[in-house]
C-alpha cells in the first residue's frame, strides 16, 4: 500500500530532481497536442456570428442527428446497464469452465478496431445475416436502421459497465448479505435492498461512460446505420459530411455542441465520484479475509 511521505510544506524545496524537465516535456506536449487543437476548434467556430452559429446547431438535420445520437446512446447505455450487471454478476459470483475466457472477451469491444466491429455487426444484422434474418422474421430491421445504431452502441458500451461494476461486486462483503439472510430477507430482497444500493454508484459510472462513448462513436455506427440524413445520421457523421463539403466553421459549431455535452457528462461523473469518496467509506472489519 502507499505510505507516501507527507510532502514538504516549503513550495520550492524539491527533494526529487527532474521536475523542470518532466514538467516542461509534459506542458509542451499537452499544449501542442491537446490545448492548441482544442483552441483551434473554439476559434474556428467563433468565426460564425451568433445568428449563424445558432442556425447551424439548430437546423432540422442537426436536430434529427442529436435526437438519434443522444437517443440511441441513452437506450444503448440503459441496455448495457442491465446486461453489464448480469455479466459482472455471473463473472464474479459463479464458477464455470471458461470463465477466464469470458472475462477476457468482455474487453473485446475495446480492443477490436471500430471499423471491424462495424462491418462484422452489419454483416450479422443485415437482412441476409443470421441475426438480421431472425429480426426480419419479427418484423424488425437490424442493419440500416435506427435499431442498427443502438445495436452498434450496445456492442461498444458493454465493457464500461462490466468493468465499473465488477471490482465493486468483488469487494462487497459477504457478511452484509448473510446478515440480511439471517434477518429473514429473501434473496430478492437482499439483492434489491442490500446489493443494488451498494452497486449504484458503479452502475451510474458505467452508464455515463457508455453513454459518453456512444455519443461520439463513429466507426462501428457508420457501417450499420445506413446514413440517411435526418433518419439514421448520427452527429459525428454529420460533422464528417460538413468537413467533406469544406464547411469547417459549421462542422466546428456542431463539434462544440457535442464536446460541451460530453464534458458535462464527465464533469457530473467526476462530482459524483468525489461525493462518493467524501461519503463515509464502508467500514471493513479487520477480520475480513483479504
Amino acid at each position: 500500500m502507499s505510505r507516501s511521505e507527507p510532502a514538504p510544506k516549503r513550495r520550492h524545496y524539491r527533494p526529487i530532481p527532474g521536475f523542470s524537465l518532466s514538467m516542461g516535456v509534459t506542458l509542451f506536449w499537452v499544449g501542442l497536442m491537446v490545448v492548441l487543437p482544442l483552441a483551434a476548434l473554439v476559434l474556428m467556430s467563433a468565426r460564425l456570428d451568433a445568428a449563424t452559429f445558432w442556425a447551424t446547431i439548430t437546423d432540422d438535420r442537426a436536430l434529427a442527428a442529436y435526437g438519434l445520437s443522444f437517443g440511441a446512446a441513452f437506450i444503448a447505455a440503459s441496455v448495457n446497464l442491465v446486461l453489464g450487471l448480469v455479466l459482472a454478476w455471473v463473472l464474479v459470483r459463479y464458477r464455470f469452465p471458461g470463465r477466464g475466457v469470458v472475462d477476457a472477451l468482455v474487453d473485446l469491444p475495446l480492443a477490436l478496431p471500430t471499423a471491424v466491429a462495424g462491418i462484422a455487426l452489419t454483416a450479422a444484422f443485415s437482412p441476409k445475416g443470421p441475426l438480421g434474418a431472425f429480426l426480419a422474421d419479427l418484423g424488425l430491421k437490424g442493419a440500416y436502421s435506427r435499431l442498427g445504431v443502438v445495436i452498434a452502441l450496445v456492442f461498444i458500451g458493454i465493457p464500461f459497465v462490466v468493468r465499473a461494476v465488477q471490482p465493486v461486486l468483488k469487494d462487497l462483503q459477504p457478511e452484509l448479505e448473510e446478515a440480511a439472510a439471517t434477518l429473514g430477507a429473501t434473496r430478492r430482497q437482499t439483492f434489491l435492498r442490500v446489493i443494488l444500493p451498494a452497486l449504484r454508484p458503479a452502475l451510474l459510472t458505467g452508464f455515463a461512460l457508455a453513454f459518453a462513448r456512444g455519443l461520439g462513436e463513429y466507426g462501428s455506427v457508420v457501417f450499420i446505420s445506413g446514413n440517411l440524413p435526418g433518419k439514421t445520421e448520427v452527429v459525428p457523421l454529420l460533422i464528417m459530411t460538413k468537413l467533406e463539403q469544406y464547411e469547417y466553421s459549421q462542422a466546428a459549431a456542431l463539434a462544440v455542441v457535442m464536446l460541451v455535452a460530453s464534458f458535462l457528462i464527465l464533469f457530473a461523473l467526476n462530482r459524483l465520484e468525489k461525493q462518493r469518496k467524501k461519503a463515509a467509506p464502508r467500514a471493513v472489519p479487520a477480520g475480513v479475509p483479504a
Binding site: L41, L237, M240
Partner: peptide
C-alpha cells in the same frame, strides 16, 4: 483533467481538430 480530455472527444472531432489547424482552409 487536460490529459484526460482526449478520452471525451469523439474520434471524428479529434481528427477534425488537425484539419482545422493545418487543413487548406485551416488556421
Amino acid at each position: 483533467a487536460v490529459i484526460d480530455l482526449p478520452f471525451a472527444v469523439s474520434p471524428v472531432i479529434s481528427g477534425m481538430l488537425f484539419v482545422l489547424l493545418f487543413g487548406a482552409a485551416g488556421l
